[in-house]
Simulated assay, not measured.
Amino acid sequence: MQLTGKITPDSLMTLEAYSKWRKAHKEDVIAHRKLRSVQLGEHIMVQFESELTMRYQIQEMLRIEKIFEEEGIQQEIDAYAPLVPDGGNWKATMLIEYPDVSERKRELGRLIGVEDRMFVEVEGQARVYAIADEDLDRENEEKTSSVHFLRFELAPAMREAVKAGAGVKLGCDHTHYPAHLQVGAETLASLAGDLR
Protein backbone atom coordinates (compact mmCIF):
# COMPACT_ATOMS: atom_id res chain seq x y z
CA MET A 1 0.00 0.00 0.00
CA GLN A 2 1.68 3.16 -1.18
CA LEU A 3 1.13 6.35 0.82
CA THR A 4 0.82 9.29 -1.56
CA GLY A 5 -0.52 12.09 0.65
CA LYS A 6 -3.87 12.07 -1.16
CA ILE A 7 -6.28 9.17 -1.56
CA THR A 8 -7.62 8.99 -5.11
CA PRO A 9 -9.23 6.15 -7.06
CA ASP A 10 -6.01 5.73 -9.05
CA SER A 11 -3.94 5.36 -5.86
CA LEU A 12 -6.03 2.46 -4.53
CA MET A 13 -5.29 -1.17 -5.26
CA THR A 14 -7.56 -3.39 -7.28
CA LEU A 15 -9.55 -5.91 -5.23
CA GLU A 16 -7.21 -8.68 -6.40
CA ALA A 17 -4.02 -6.76 -5.57
CA TYR A 18 -5.41 -5.71 -2.19
CA SER A 19 -6.33 -9.30 -1.33
CA LYS A 20 -2.68 -10.34 -1.80
CA TRP A 21 -1.34 -7.26 0.02
CA ARG A 22 -3.77 -7.80 2.92
CA LYS A 23 -2.50 -11.32 3.61
CA ALA A 24 1.07 -10.04 3.97
CA HIS A 25 0.39 -6.75 5.80
CA LYS A 26 -2.79 -6.99 7.90
CA GLU A 27 -0.81 -7.52 11.14
CA ASP A 28 1.33 -4.44 10.38
CA VAL A 29 -1.77 -2.27 10.00
CA ILE A 30 -3.27 -3.65 13.21
CA ALA A 31 -0.01 -2.84 15.06
CA HIS A 32 0.00 0.69 13.56
CA ARG A 33 -3.62 1.22 14.64
CA LYS A 34 -2.88 -0.11 18.15
CA LEU A 35 0.13 2.22 18.46
CA ARG A 36 -2.12 5.18 17.64
CA SER A 37 -4.92 4.19 20.06
CA VAL A 38 -5.15 5.95 23.42
CA GLN A 39 -7.43 4.73 26.21
CA LEU A 40 -8.71 7.77 28.13
CA GLY A 41 -10.18 6.60 31.40
CA GLU A 42 -12.24 3.42 31.43
CA HIS A 43 -14.72 4.20 28.69
CA ILE A 44 -13.23 6.41 25.95
CA MET A 45 -10.88 5.13 23.26
CA VAL A 46 -9.31 7.66 20.91
CA GLN A 47 -7.97 6.22 17.66
CA PHE A 48 -5.73 8.73 15.90
CA GLU A 49 -6.14 8.20 12.19
CA SER A 50 -3.50 8.35 9.47
CA GLU A 51 -3.34 7.94 5.72
CA LEU A 52 -2.51 4.27 6.31
CA THR A 53 -5.50 3.62 8.60
CA MET A 54 -7.88 5.36 6.20
CA ARG A 55 -6.48 3.67 3.07
CA TYR A 56 -6.87 0.35 4.87
CA GLN A 57 -10.46 1.23 5.88
CA ILE A 58 -11.37 2.20 2.31
CA GLN A 59 -9.75 -0.92 0.85
CA GLU A 60 -11.53 -3.08 3.43
CA MET A 61 -14.91 -1.54 2.58
CA LEU A 62 -14.28 -2.06 -1.14
CA ARG A 63 -13.30 -5.68 -0.44
CA ILE A 64 -16.22 -6.48 1.89
CA GLU A 65 -18.82 -4.80 -0.32
CA LYS A 66 -17.12 -6.00 -3.54
CA ILE A 67 -17.15 -2.45 -4.90
CA PHE A 68 -15.27 -1.98 -8.15
CA GLU A 69 -17.28 0.71 -9.97
CA GLU A 70 -15.98 4.29 -10.02
CA GLU A 71 -18.98 5.83 -8.29
CA GLY A 72 -18.88 3.38 -5.38
CA ILE A 73 -15.12 3.78 -4.98
CA GLN A 74 -15.48 7.57 -4.90
CA GLN A 75 -18.23 7.32 -2.26
CA GLU A 76 -15.90 5.35 0.02
CA ILE A 77 -13.09 7.86 -0.55
CA ASP A 78 -15.47 10.75 0.20
CA ALA A 79 -16.55 9.04 3.43
CA TYR A 80 -13.10 8.28 4.83
CA ALA A 81 -10.48 10.57 3.24
CA PRO A 82 -11.56 13.58 5.36
CA LEU A 83 -10.16 11.68 8.38
CA VAL A 84 -6.59 11.81 7.02
CA PRO A 85 -4.58 14.49 8.89
CA ASP A 86 -3.34 17.26 6.60
CA GLY A 87 -0.05 18.19 8.29
CA GLY A 88 -1.50 20.84 10.59
CA ASN A 89 -3.78 18.67 12.67
CA TRP A 90 -4.54 15.33 14.23
CA LYS A 91 -7.76 13.56 13.35
CA ALA A 92 -9.30 10.83 15.43
CA THR A 93 -12.21 8.49 15.89
CA MET A 94 -13.52 8.61 19.47
CA LEU A 95 -15.35 5.54 20.78
CA ILE A 96 -17.40 5.62 23.97
CA GLU A 97 -17.44 2.04 25.23
CA TYR A 98 -19.79 0.62 27.86
CA PRO A 99 -20.29 -3.16 27.52
CA ASP A 100 -23.52 -3.18 29.56
CA VAL A 101 -26.46 -1.97 27.43
CA SER A 102 -28.40 -0.23 30.22
CA GLU A 103 -25.26 1.45 31.58
CA ARG A 104 -24.34 2.58 28.05
CA LYS A 105 -27.79 4.10 27.50
CA ARG A 106 -27.63 5.95 30.84
CA GLU A 107 -24.06 7.22 30.32
CA LEU A 108 -24.62 8.36 26.72
CA GLY A 109 -27.43 10.49 28.14
CA ARG A 110 -25.08 11.99 30.76
CA LEU A 111 -22.26 12.56 28.24
CA ILE A 112 -24.05 14.88 25.81
CA GLY A 113 -21.41 17.32 24.52
CA VAL A 114 -18.43 15.17 25.56
CA GLU A 115 -16.94 15.35 22.06
CA ASP A 116 -16.61 19.14 22.37
CA ARG A 117 -14.76 18.81 25.70
CA MET A 118 -11.95 16.62 24.32
CA PHE A 119 -8.57 18.35 24.17
CA VAL A 120 -4.88 17.99 23.50
CA GLU A 121 -2.35 20.08 25.37
CA VAL A 122 1.16 20.43 24.02
CA GLU A 123 3.70 21.08 26.79
CA GLY A 124 4.02 24.84 27.34
CA GLN A 125 1.05 25.67 25.08
CA ALA A 126 -2.67 26.31 25.56
CA ARG A 127 -5.20 23.50 25.28
CA VAL A 128 -6.68 22.82 21.87
CA TYR A 129 -10.26 21.56 21.97
CA ALA A 130 -11.56 19.17 19.35
CA ILE A 131 -13.64 20.29 16.42
CA ALA A 132 -16.12 17.42 16.42
CA ASP A 133 -18.40 15.73 13.93
CA GLU A 134 -17.93 18.08 11.01
CA ASP A 135 -19.80 15.74 8.66
CA LEU A 136 -23.02 15.51 10.72
CA ASP A 137 -24.36 15.99 14.23
CA ARG A 138 -24.13 12.78 16.22
CA GLU A 139 -26.23 13.60 19.26
CA ASN A 140 -29.73 14.70 20.16
CA GLU A 141 -31.41 16.07 23.27
CA GLU A 142 -31.51 12.62 24.88
CA LYS A 143 -28.05 11.18 24.22
CA THR A 144 -24.75 11.45 22.45
CA SER A 145 -23.47 8.90 19.96
CA SER A 146 -20.97 6.22 20.94
CA VAL A 147 -18.80 7.28 17.95
CA HIS A 148 -17.48 10.77 17.17
CA PHE A 149 -14.92 12.14 14.73
CA LEU A 150 -12.48 14.72 16.11
CA ARG A 151 -10.03 17.19 14.60
CA PHE A 152 -7.38 18.93 16.71
CA GLU A 153 -5.90 21.95 14.87
CA LEU A 154 -2.34 22.66 16.03
CA ALA A 155 -0.72 26.07 15.59
CA PRO A 156 2.74 26.11 13.96
CA ALA A 157 4.47 26.61 17.35
CA MET A 158 2.67 23.56 18.74
CA ARG A 159 3.64 21.43 15.75
CA GLU A 160 7.29 22.49 16.10
CA ALA A 161 7.23 21.75 19.84
CA VAL A 162 5.82 18.25 19.26
CA LYS A 163 8.40 17.52 16.56
CA ALA A 164 11.12 18.75 18.97
CA GLY A 165 9.98 16.30 21.65
CA ALA A 166 7.46 18.23 23.79
CA GLY A 167 5.04 16.13 25.81
CA VAL A 168 1.35 16.05 24.96
CA LYS A 169 -1.68 15.43 27.17
CA LEU A 170 -4.94 14.06 25.85
CA GLY A 171 -7.93 14.87 27.99
CA CYS A 172 -11.58 15.53 28.53
CA ASP A 173 -13.01 18.13 30.89
CA HIS A 174 -16.69 17.16 30.55
CA THR A 175 -18.43 17.37 33.94
CA HIS A 176 -19.27 13.65 33.88
CA TYR A 177 -15.98 12.41 32.40
CA PRO A 178 -12.98 14.32 33.74
CA ALA A 179 -9.85 12.52 32.57
CA HIS A 180 -6.42 13.25 31.12
CA LEU A 181 -3.14 11.46 30.49
CA GLN A 182 0.28 11.92 28.95
CA VAL A 183 0.41 10.44 25.47
CA GLY A 184 3.04 7.67 25.46
CA ALA A 185 6.38 8.30 23.75
CA GLU A 186 5.91 5.73 20.96
CA THR A 187 2.38 6.94 20.19
CA LEU A 188 3.55 10.55 20.24
CA ALA A 189 6.43 9.76 17.87
CA SER A 190 3.90 8.30 15.41
CA LEU A 191 1.63 11.36 15.79
CA ALA A 192 4.56 13.74 15.31
CA GLY A 193 5.05 12.12 11.89
CA ASP A 194 1.65 13.52 10.85
CA LEU A 195 2.82 17.12 11.34
CA ARG A 196 4.55 19.46 8.91
Rank of each mutant, 00 (worst) to 15 (best):
M54D: 05
L111R: 07
L52S: 08
L15P: 06
V46P: 01
A130G: 01
T4D: 13
K91E: 05
V38M: 04
D135S: 03
V183G: 03
E103Q: 14
V183Y: 00
L136R: 12
F68S: 15
K163H: 09
E42P: 00
K66E: 13
V183C: 09
E71K: 12
I77D: 03
K34H: 10
Q125A: 13
L3G: 14
S190T: 08
M1S: 12
R36M: 15
V29E: 09
P85M: 05
T144R: 00
H180S: 15
R63V: 01
K34E: 15
M118G: 01
W21T: 04
Q182W: 13
G193W: 09
M118L: 11
L111I: 12
W21V: 08
L40I: 08
Q59P: 04
A79P: 00
Q125V: 00
L195E: 07
E186K: 15
G5C: 14
E123C: 09
S190H: 05
A185F: 08
A81S: 15
E139L: 02
S190G: 13
H148C: 03
A24I: 10
L83A: 06
I131A: 02
A24C: 10
G167S: 15
G171K: 05
D137K: 13
M54H: 04
Y18T: 07
L136T: 08
S146F: 10
L12D: 05
I30G: 05
V46C: 02
V38D: 02
T144Q: 01
L191Y: 04
L35Y: 04
L12T: 10
I58N: 05
D135N: 01
V84P: 03
H25L: 07
G72Q: 02
A24L: 14
Q125L: 11
I112L: 14
V114P: 01
R127T: 10
E153C: 00
I96D: 09
E49A: 05
A164F: 07
G171T: 05
L95G: 04
N140R: 06
E107T: 07
S102L: 14
E107V: 12
H32T: 11
A166D: 10
T14P: 08
F68D: 14
E142P: 01
R117K: 13
M1E: 10
Y129P: 01
V120G: 05
V183N: 03
A179K: 07
P178V: 10
Q75C: 08
G5N: 13
P82T: 07
S145Y: 00
L35E: 11
K26V: 15
S146R: 04
Y98P: 07
P9D: 06
E107A: 05
I30E: 15
H25S: 11
D133E: 06
T4L: 15
G184M: 11
L181S: 11
D135Y: 01
E186N: 14
L136V: 10
E107I: 06
